[in-house]
Simulated scan of single mutants.
Amino acid sequence: MPSDLDPAPADALADGRIAIAQTGDIRQAWFARPTARYAHGVLGDAIEAGSLVVVTASGKVLEAILPVDQVFEDITPRIADLDGDGTNEVIAIRSSKDGGAAATIFGIVGTELKLRGAGSENGRPNRWLNIAGLVPHPDGGLTLYGVRTPHIGGRLFVLDFRNGKLSESNDIATDVSNHIIGSRELGMSATGNFGGRMELILPSQDRRRLRFPLSGRADIALPGAIDKAIALVDGRVLTATVDGTLIVVSP
Protein backbone atom coordinates (compact mmCIF):
# COMPACT_ATOMS: atom_id res chain seq x y z
CA MET A 1 0.00 0.00 0.00
CA PRO A 2 1.59 3.35 -1.00
CA SER A 3 3.04 5.33 1.90
CA ASP A 4 1.84 8.65 0.43
CA LEU A 5 -1.80 7.91 1.22
CA ASP A 6 -3.46 10.19 3.74
CA PRO A 7 -3.02 9.18 7.39
CA ALA A 8 -6.04 7.60 9.02
CA PRO A 9 -8.02 9.68 11.55
CA ALA A 10 -6.45 10.43 14.92
CA ASP A 11 -8.56 7.80 16.69
CA ALA A 12 -7.58 5.08 14.19
CA LEU A 13 -4.61 2.70 14.11
CA ALA A 14 -1.32 4.51 14.69
CA ASP A 15 0.48 5.17 11.37
CA GLY A 16 -2.31 3.46 9.44
CA ARG A 17 -3.34 4.95 6.12
CA ILE A 18 -6.62 5.52 4.32
CA ALA A 19 -7.07 3.21 1.34
CA ILE A 20 -8.79 5.03 -1.52
CA ALA A 21 -10.81 3.83 -4.53
CA GLN A 22 -11.95 6.10 -7.37
CA THR A 23 -14.93 3.94 -8.36
CA GLY A 24 -17.35 1.49 -6.76
CA ASP A 25 -19.48 1.59 -3.64
CA ILE A 26 -16.61 1.67 -1.11
CA ARG A 27 -14.34 4.68 -1.61
CA GLN A 28 -12.25 4.77 1.57
CA ALA A 29 -11.18 2.27 4.23
CA TRP A 30 -9.00 2.28 7.34
CA PHE A 31 -8.42 0.36 10.57
CA ALA A 32 -9.69 1.71 13.90
CA ARG A 33 -10.18 0.89 17.61
CA PRO A 34 -6.50 0.32 18.51
CA THR A 35 -6.00 -2.50 21.00
CA ALA A 36 -3.19 -4.42 22.72
CA ARG A 37 -5.27 -7.60 23.20
CA TYR A 38 -3.21 -9.70 20.74
CA ALA A 39 0.37 -10.08 21.98
CA HIS A 40 2.44 -10.72 18.88
CA GLY A 41 4.11 -7.54 17.61
CA VAL A 42 4.96 -8.91 14.16
CA LEU A 43 4.58 -5.41 12.69
CA GLY A 44 6.91 -3.77 15.18
CA ASP A 45 4.58 -2.79 18.01
CA ALA A 46 1.97 -4.29 20.34
CA ILE A 47 -0.99 -2.32 18.97
CA GLU A 48 -3.40 -3.82 16.43
CA ALA A 49 -6.87 -2.80 15.23
CA GLY A 50 -10.24 -3.89 16.54
CA SER A 51 -12.37 -2.66 13.65
CA LEU A 52 -12.52 -1.79 9.96
CA VAL A 53 -14.13 1.47 8.84
CA VAL A 54 -15.27 2.33 5.31
CA VAL A 55 -16.80 5.36 3.62
CA THR A 56 -19.24 4.75 0.77
CA ALA A 57 -19.64 6.69 -2.47
CA SER A 58 -22.55 8.54 -0.87
CA GLY A 59 -20.43 9.50 2.15
CA LYS A 60 -21.92 7.03 4.63
CA VAL A 61 -19.53 5.69 7.28
CA LEU A 62 -19.81 1.98 8.14
CA GLU A 63 -17.81 -0.05 10.67
CA ALA A 64 -17.23 -3.76 11.22
CA ILE A 65 -16.14 -4.49 14.81
CA LEU A 66 -14.27 -7.70 15.58
CA PRO A 67 -15.00 -9.92 18.59
CA VAL A 68 -12.56 -9.69 21.50
CA ASP A 69 -10.59 -12.78 20.42
CA GLN A 70 -9.66 -11.25 17.04
CA VAL A 71 -7.73 -8.26 15.68
CA PHE A 72 -6.72 -6.85 12.33
CA GLU A 73 -2.98 -7.53 12.34
CA ASP A 74 -2.48 -5.14 9.44
CA ILE A 75 -1.71 -1.49 8.67
CA THR A 76 -3.77 -0.31 5.70
CA PRO A 77 -6.71 -2.17 4.09
CA ARG A 78 -6.87 -2.88 0.33
CA ILE A 79 -9.93 -1.95 -1.76
CA ALA A 80 -10.61 -3.94 -4.93
CA ASP A 81 -13.48 -5.35 -7.00
CA LEU A 82 -12.42 -8.97 -6.61
CA ASP A 83 -15.34 -10.61 -8.39
CA GLY A 84 -15.72 -8.02 -11.16
CA ASP A 85 -19.35 -7.18 -10.35
CA GLY A 86 -18.82 -3.41 -10.07
CA THR A 87 -18.91 -3.28 -6.26
CA ASN A 88 -15.82 -3.21 -4.10
CA GLU A 89 -14.45 -5.57 -1.49
CA VAL A 90 -11.98 -4.75 1.26
CA ILE A 91 -9.11 -7.15 1.96
CA ALA A 92 -7.67 -7.29 5.47
CA ILE A 93 -5.36 -9.53 7.51
CA ARG A 94 -7.27 -10.77 10.56
CA SER A 95 -5.69 -12.74 13.41
CA SER A 96 -7.34 -14.76 16.16
CA LYS A 97 -6.04 -15.86 19.55
CA ASP A 98 -6.63 -19.51 18.63
CA GLY A 99 -5.83 -19.80 14.93
CA GLY A 100 -3.46 -17.00 13.94
CA ALA A 101 -3.80 -15.01 10.74
CA ALA A 102 -6.22 -15.34 7.82
CA ALA A 103 -6.94 -13.26 4.74
CA THR A 104 -10.45 -11.82 4.99
CA ILE A 105 -12.80 -10.12 2.56
CA PHE A 106 -15.39 -7.55 3.67
CA GLY A 107 -18.12 -5.86 1.66
CA ILE A 108 -21.39 -4.00 1.96
CA VAL A 109 -24.41 -6.25 2.45
CA GLY A 110 -27.61 -4.28 2.54
CA THR A 111 -26.73 -1.30 4.70
CA GLU A 112 -23.95 -2.94 6.73
CA LEU A 113 -20.25 -3.72 6.34
CA LYS A 114 -19.94 -7.48 6.73
CA LEU A 115 -17.47 -10.31 6.34
CA ARG A 116 -18.00 -11.84 2.88
CA GLY A 117 -15.37 -14.57 3.13
CA ALA A 118 -12.23 -15.69 4.95
CA GLY A 119 -9.37 -17.95 3.97
CA SER A 120 -8.15 -20.58 6.39
CA GLU A 121 -6.21 -19.50 9.46
CA ASN A 122 -2.59 -20.52 9.90
CA GLY A 123 -3.55 -22.97 12.63
CA ARG A 124 -2.07 -21.45 15.77
CA PRO A 125 -1.68 -18.01 17.37
CA ASN A 126 1.25 -15.76 16.44
CA ARG A 127 1.47 -17.25 12.94
CA TRP A 128 1.03 -14.40 10.48
CA LEU A 129 0.55 -13.99 6.73
CA ASN A 130 1.00 -11.11 4.32
CA ILE A 131 -0.94 -10.23 1.19
CA ALA A 132 1.32 -10.57 -1.88
CA GLY A 133 -0.77 -9.09 -4.68
CA LEU A 134 -3.85 -9.06 -6.88
CA VAL A 135 -3.68 -10.58 -10.36
CA PRO A 136 -6.35 -10.11 -13.08
CA HIS A 137 -8.60 -13.15 -13.42
CA PRO A 138 -9.25 -14.49 -16.94
CA ASP A 139 -13.01 -14.18 -16.38
CA GLY A 140 -12.82 -10.70 -14.87
CA GLY A 141 -12.11 -9.46 -11.38
CA LEU A 142 -8.95 -10.23 -9.47
CA THR A 143 -7.28 -13.20 -7.79
CA LEU A 144 -5.66 -12.66 -4.40
CA TYR A 145 -2.25 -14.12 -3.55
CA GLY A 146 -0.60 -14.18 -0.14
CA VAL A 147 2.32 -15.67 1.77
CA ARG A 148 1.72 -17.76 4.88
CA THR A 149 4.38 -17.51 7.60
CA PRO A 150 6.74 -15.33 5.51
CA HIS A 151 9.36 -15.53 8.29
CA ILE A 152 9.39 -19.33 8.69
CA GLY A 153 9.12 -21.22 5.45
CA GLY A 154 7.04 -18.89 3.30
CA ARG A 155 4.17 -20.70 1.52
CA LEU A 156 2.22 -19.05 -1.29
CA PHE A 157 -1.58 -19.38 -1.31
CA VAL A 158 -4.33 -18.11 -3.59
CA LEU A 159 -7.94 -17.03 -2.97
CA ASP A 160 -10.65 -16.55 -5.59
CA PHE A 161 -13.88 -14.74 -4.65
CA ARG A 162 -16.65 -15.52 -7.14
CA ASN A 163 -20.46 -15.43 -6.86
CA GLY A 164 -20.26 -14.74 -3.14
CA LYS A 165 -18.08 -17.78 -2.45
CA LEU A 166 -14.38 -18.10 -1.69
CA SER A 167 -12.11 -20.87 -3.00
CA GLU A 168 -8.60 -21.44 -1.71
CA SER A 169 -5.46 -23.25 -2.87
CA ASN A 170 -2.43 -23.60 -0.62
CA ASP A 171 1.27 -24.33 -1.01
CA ILE A 172 1.38 -23.40 -4.68
CA ALA A 173 4.99 -22.30 -4.05
CA THR A 174 7.42 -22.48 -1.13
CA ASP A 175 10.68 -20.71 -0.24
CA VAL A 176 9.10 -17.26 -0.61
CA SER A 177 8.78 -14.25 1.68
CA ASN A 178 7.47 -10.70 1.52
CA HIS A 179 8.04 -9.42 5.04
CA ILE A 180 10.71 -9.10 7.74
CA ILE A 181 9.53 -9.75 11.27
CA GLY A 182 9.05 -6.49 13.15
CA SER A 183 8.99 -4.38 9.98
CA ARG A 184 6.19 -1.98 8.97
CA GLU A 185 7.01 -2.57 5.28
CA LEU A 186 4.29 -4.78 3.79
CA GLY A 187 5.07 -4.07 0.13
CA MET A 188 7.89 -6.51 -0.59
CA SER A 189 6.04 -8.04 -3.57
CA ALA A 190 4.52 -6.73 -6.77
CA THR A 191 2.30 -7.74 -9.67
CA GLY A 192 2.40 -6.53 -13.25
CA ASN A 193 3.85 -7.03 -16.70
CA PHE A 194 7.46 -8.17 -16.72
CA GLY A 195 9.00 -9.39 -19.95
CA GLY A 196 5.65 -9.71 -21.68
CA ARG A 197 4.01 -11.78 -18.93
CA MET A 198 1.77 -11.00 -15.99
CA GLU A 199 3.94 -11.85 -13.01
CA LEU A 200 3.79 -12.00 -9.24
CA ILE A 201 7.27 -11.01 -8.09
CA LEU A 202 8.48 -11.63 -4.57
CA PRO A 203 11.70 -12.54 -2.76
CA SER A 204 12.97 -15.95 -1.78
CA GLN A 205 12.96 -16.79 1.91
CA ASP A 206 16.48 -15.37 2.35
CA ARG A 207 15.51 -12.29 0.26
CA ARG A 208 18.53 -12.77 -2.03
CA ARG A 209 16.60 -13.87 -5.12
CA LEU A 210 13.54 -12.62 -6.97
CA ARG A 211 11.03 -15.40 -7.62
CA PHE A 212 8.24 -15.68 -10.22
CA PRO A 213 5.89 -18.45 -9.04
CA LEU A 214 3.07 -17.81 -11.53
CA SER A 215 5.13 -18.29 -14.68
CA GLY A 216 7.97 -20.46 -13.45
CA ARG A 217 10.53 -17.96 -14.77
CA ALA A 218 14.00 -18.69 -13.37
CA ASP A 219 14.94 -16.93 -10.15
CA ILE A 220 17.02 -13.77 -10.48
CA ALA A 221 19.93 -13.50 -8.04
CA LEU A 222 20.34 -10.21 -6.17
CA PRO A 223 23.56 -8.57 -4.91
CA GLY A 224 22.34 -8.78 -1.32
CA ALA A 225 19.28 -9.32 0.87
CA ILE A 226 16.52 -6.80 0.25
CA ASP A 227 14.36 -5.12 2.88
CA LYS A 228 12.58 -2.46 0.82
CA ALA A 229 9.34 -2.48 -1.14
CA ILE A 230 9.29 -4.01 -4.61
CA ALA A 231 7.82 -1.93 -7.44
CA LEU A 232 7.28 -2.50 -11.16
CA VAL A 233 8.00 0.68 -13.12
CA ASP A 234 7.95 0.71 -16.92
CA GLY A 235 8.35 -3.05 -16.99
CA ARG A 236 11.38 -3.08 -14.67
CA VAL A 237 11.63 -4.25 -11.07
CA LEU A 238 12.86 -1.71 -8.51
CA THR A 239 13.89 -2.50 -4.94
CA ALA A 240 16.85 -2.00 -2.59
CA THR A 241 19.13 -4.00 -0.33
CA VAL A 242 19.52 -3.71 3.42
CA ASP A 243 22.49 -1.35 2.95
CA GLY A 244 20.48 0.91 0.64
CA THR A 245 21.84 -0.26 -2.71
CA LEU A 246 19.26 0.44 -5.42
CA ILE A 247 18.41 -2.56 -7.60
CA VAL A 248 16.87 -2.24 -11.06
CA VAL A 249 16.05 -5.50 -12.86
CA SER A 250 15.11 -5.55 -16.53
CA PRO A 251 13.58 -8.61 -18.23
Rank of each mutant, 00 (worst) to 15 (best):
Gly119Pro: 04
Ile47Cys: 00
Gly110Glu: 13
Ile220Asn: 01
Ala221Tyr: 00
Pro125Phe: 10
Leu232Met: 13
Leu144Ile: 03
Gly50Ile: 13
Glu63Lys: 05
Gly244Asp: 01
Pro7Phe: 04
Arg236Phe: 07
Ile180Pro: 00
Gly84Ala: 09
Arg94Val: 13
Phe157Lys: 01
Pro2Ile: 07
Val53Asn: 03
Asp175Pro: 05
Ser167Gly: 09
Glu185Ala: 08
Pro125Gly: 10
Asp227Met: 10
Glu185Val: 11
Lys114Thr: 03
Trp128Phe: 14
Gly235Ile: 03
Gly154Ala: 07
Ala225Met: 06
Tyr145Gly: 07
Leu200Tyr: 06
Asn126Pro: 04
Gly16Phe: 07
Leu210Pro: 03
Gly235Val: 03
Glu185Ile: 13
Thr104His: 06
Ala8Phe: 12
Gly84Thr: 09
Leu202Ser: 05
Pro138Phe: 14
Val55Leu: 10
Asp45Trp: 11
Val90Arg: 00
Thr239Gln: 00
Gly140Asp: 13
Asp15Gln: 11
Leu202Cys: 06
Val248Phe: 03
Pro138Gln: 15
Asp69Val: 06
Asp25Phe: 07
Val90His: 01
Pro67Lys: 11
Ala49Glu: 15
Gly196Leu: 13
Pro251Asp: 05
Asp171Phe: 10
Leu43His: 10
Phe106Val: 09
Pro138Gly: 15
Asn126Cys: 09
Ala29Tyr: 12
Pro150Gly: 05
Thr191Tyr: 05
Gly99Glu: 10
Ala92Gly: 13
Gln205Thr: 08
Asp98Gly: 13
Ser169Trp: 14
Glu121Gly: 12
Ile247Cys: 00
Ile47Trp: 06
Phe212Gln: 10
Ile131Arg: 00
Arg207Thr: 02
Pro77Lys: 07
Val53His: 02
Gly196Trp: 09
Gly44Ser: 06
Ala103Met: 13
His40Ser: 05
Ala57Arg: 13
Arg197Pro: 02
